[in-house]
Nucleic acid binder design. Structure first.
Lengths: 293, 293
DNA sequence: CTGTTAGCGCATTCAG
DNA sequence: CTGAATGCGCTAACAG
């Protein structure tokens, strides 16, 4: 009996899952893994899930819109639950509900349909950045935004705009793609539009902020933050590199992943739990890329 | 019949797998996801595997040594194959063979046991870097290596050393951990040991090279590459950022993942195929962080 | 060619 | 409390 175990026997999870209706599989859907924020999230999630006996079935999307194909790939595996960092339509969320698969949205929320979610508070984060920038007497603002189909992007944009509006400031806005090149390009366009007269640029993520800093230094020969303040969002690894020392908001990734996993497992054990949204405040990294007041 | 399909019916992959002995699951094991090279690899792998109807069961290790636990987590799921970017002992490779699970090692090779593998050619890469550095009359070398348990790290170290040896040069060597901080720290230590007299520092990956550059500029006020040449390895995203413009070797990630996937699927279809090693040359990115001859 | 049946490897139930 | 039978949802082999 135990000899069999020592001989390398492992129970067949499939046969077992057929009976128990538990597969111990969790689907993790991430829209674009190359976003510097997600590798850390993914590593945390897999480790936390592994620690409690669950396996990760990974799905990565090239575009946020390929979700439907992914869903059809998920169903046959009868996953116990899903953590999704991609934009879901209400209809797609309903599919999870209909099939009784608990789901946690990561840095997203349901549109009309309520869904359990874990988010970093974009609104308070941008508000805090803007507050400090205004206190340092910056008046002429630019924003390098994300693509329109990004949920966090639009959240951050709305919040930054609203915060500026309260000081009667209308920023110039340029659409980027959350990558380095679009940050670099974005700064060029904004400086162009502003005739070089800009006090601060709010980038809606760190990688674009880094692109903007490099552009400002290399192409415009500006000194950061003396000639121009630049802020980001996320708190990814490179944000603290000595070459950048970004002023940014760090997402509390550990607490967020922890929350996502525990919320999900609760719902696996106990279906029919009420949707709950958990919103975590980010931490201001002062850095050196902006003059703050 | 088709009404059922429209009604959302999806066959149960578990019941199916029980019969067909095909699960369409591929285990992907990655030692540390936060290494900037791996997110790209992982994204490519998942997309390529998805495209041909396979799903990815992800395992990420905190330390390269936790492999045994992971293996026991893999067996119950009867995966069709595995792609492993972590160090496996011969014994562990044998376990895959014994269970008839095809495996492809990614940037690793079997120790004594032959195993199919896909690698970027460390030897030729470092050799080329050294060749160009020597041609530019650098004579005093430092190396910032990886941890001893890293396979690619030791490969690159051996090759760099060998290439230098042929010019009768013995470099100073410092052990890093493949992360930014250890690159920064490594440069400090090396400059210390060399009494500030160093022509070139070979970092065995890009992130350490970036740390070294930042350290050189910030702490030692050196101009790169005028005062000191620094080279890396991998060709990760930040390597091309304007703030660094690394001189490095870029791994052909697309071709490597493509090869890994096709080799694996071949072996899934056709068990008992001979182990094959595929070695891909890297591409020299000239960059601006080193004076080359 | 359509309709039926056996069995994949387990967990769960029931009888002994 | 231990041992044999049932069925999870599907595919394969089989008979009609």
């Amino acid at each position: 009996m135990r000899a069999a175990k020592q001989l390398g026997y492992q129970p067949n999870a499939f046969a077992r899952g057929l009976i128990t209706r538990r597969t111990n599989l969790i689907a993790v859907v991430i829209s674009n893994l190359t976003n510097l924020n997600y590798p850390e999230v993914l590593a945390e999630l897999t480790q936390r899930l592994s620690a409690v006996g669950n396996r990760v079935l990974l799905f990565s999307l090239a575009a946020e819109s390929d979700v439907n194909e992914v869903l059809d790939q998920i169903w046959p595996y009868r996953v116990d639950g899903a953590i999704v960092a991609a934009r879901l339509t209400d209809d797609q969320i309903e599919q999870f509900n209909d099939r009784g698969v608990p789901i946690i949205l990561y840095n997203r929320v349901g549109d009309m349909v309520p869904a359990a979610s874990v988010c970093c508070d974009s609104a308070s984060g941008e508000r805090e950045l803007v507050k400090h920038l205004l206190a340092a007497r910056h008046r002429r603002f630019g924003i390098i935004a994300g693509p329109e189909d990004s949920y966090v992007g639009e959240e951050r944009l709305a919040s930054a705009r609203r915060s500026l509006e309260q000081a009667d400031i209308t920023p110039l806005v340029h659409r980027g793609r959350f990558d380095y090149d679009s940050g670099k390009e974005g700064l060029r366009v904004l400086l162009d539009q502003a005739g070089g007269k800009l006090d601060a640029v709010i980038c809606l993520n760190d990688v674009m902020a880094i692109g903007a800093i490099d552009c400002a230094r290399t192409l415009f020969n500006l000194s950061i933050p003396n000639d121009l303040s630049i802020v980001g969002f996320d708190g990814v690894g490179p944000a603290t590199w000595l070459g950048y020392r970004l002023t940014t908001i760090r997402q509390p990734v550990r607490r967020m992943t922890q929350a996502a996993v525990s919320m999900l497992l609760e719902r696996v054990e106990n279906p029919g739990m009420i949707p709950e949204q958990r919103l975590f405040g980010g931490e201001l990294l002062t850095g050196q890329s902006a003059r703050l007041g």
